[in-house]
């Protein structure tokens, strides 16, 4: 039964990056079934992520639509979400969508003055890129520009 539920969740889009599903993002941590009740555990990417409520409702609706009437959504903060949990499929979809996927694994340890990462431009694939700002259009992204094709782009930063 949990397999069928995972299948449904694989069609629930992330509200902020709609090309990804909540499963691609690694936001769904666990699915359990107790009698007739479905318990889905989700975890926020950033602690202040404003999309969490919407993700919760979207999961609720998708499951109710599929006939699961008793659904409980739990929020877990531990262990904390990391970009390592994003599926490879998800990373490929991001790239295609025009957002550079997280490079390398886990949080950037080069904090307090490491050089900014040379991220690959999702459009022209050049690595001749510069970070404009560590903080982008959503909490999970940084803003970059490509020095070759001159386009700005979002980078899904490692966390």
């Amino acid at each position: 039964m949990t397999e069928a539920i995972w299948k449904i969740l694989k069609n629930v889009a992330d509200p902020e990056i709609p090309v990804l599903t909540v499963v691609d993002m690694g936001v769904v941590r666990e699915v359990e079934v107790e009698d007739q009740k479905v318990i889905v555990s989700i975890t926020p990417t950033y602690s202040g992520c404003p999309a969490m409520n919407e993700i919760e409702s979207n999961i609720q609706w998708a499951l109710e639509e599929a006939g699961y009437n008793e659904v409980e959504i739990k929020t877990l903060i531990s262990p904390p979400w990391t970009t390592d949990w994003m599926t490879d499929e998800g990373k490929a979809k991001l790239q295609e969508y025009g957002i550079a996927p997280p490079e390398g694994s886990s949080a950037d340890k080069s904090v307090l003055f490491g050089e900014a990462k040379k991220v690959m431009c999702p459009r022209c694939k050049s690595r001749n890129t510069t970070m404009v700002s560590q903080f982008g259009s959503t909490a999970c992204k940084a803003l970059y520009k490509c020095e070759d094709c001159k386009e700005p782009f979002d980078y899904f930063k490692c966390l």
Binding site: S78, P80, A107, K157
Partner: peptide, 10 residues
């Protein structure tokens, strides 16, 4: 703390 430290680092 495990959740917050990642953000605080940035």
């Amino acid at each position: 703390a495990h959740k917050a430290i990642k953000e605080i680092t940035y």
